[in-house]
């Protein structure tokens, strides 16, 4: 199934992307900014601006309609999140569910630092002095005289 869906991305690459025209430069900027920050759900590693999937075209049209109707950026984002979830945002909001996403790397770094310290300390620590019996055996093996 995944295969056919990916193929869908490739096949629709030829779909005409009608360039959008804006009467208001502010709207044009808002549209561009939104497309860069919104993720296409079909070709998941592409933004709406990059993706040629059919769904991306539909969502671009929807964003265009809302932007030219004078809607705020936040409202448009909310509209899409209500339907597709936080997943459509390339910059997900900080909340308990996305905590690991935001702080995971830091956590990993802390863990590595901890292990690093443990290992370094282990290497630097002097080894325990030999027991008398062990010392005698060692000397016997090495054949050296006791001092």
């Amino acid at each position: 199934m995944g295969g056919t869906l990916w193929l869908g991305c490739v096949l629709t690459a030829a779909a005409a992307d009608i360039p959008q025209t804006f009467a208001d430069l502010l709207h044009a900027a808002r549209y561009e900014r939104l497309l860069e920050e919104l993720r296409c759900l079909v070709c998941q590693n592409q933004s709406l601006a990059d993706s040629n999937a059919d769904l991306a075209q539909d969502l671009r049209n929807e964003v265009y309609r809302m932007v030219t109707a004078g809607q705020e950026e936040a409202a448009i984002r909310e509209f899409l999140v209500a339907r597709y979830g936080d997943f459509v945002l390339y910059r997900p909001p900080m909340k308990p569910l996305t905590g690991l996403l935001w702080f995971g790397p830091l956590l990993l770094l802390a863990l590595v630092a901890m292990i690093w310290r443990q290992v370094a300390r282990g290497a630097a620590a002097p080894s325990a002095p030999l027991e008398d019996a062990d010392r005698a055996r060692l000397q016997a093996l090495l054949g050296s005289r006791p001092d």
Binding site: G2, L5, L41, Q44, V81, A82, R83, Y84, G85, D86, F87
Partner: peptide, 9 residues
């Protein structure tokens, strides 16, 4: 499944 996106609906 990386294609699975939980629905907010």
């Amino acid at each position: 499944d990386p294609r699975y996106v939980p629905s907010p609906l």
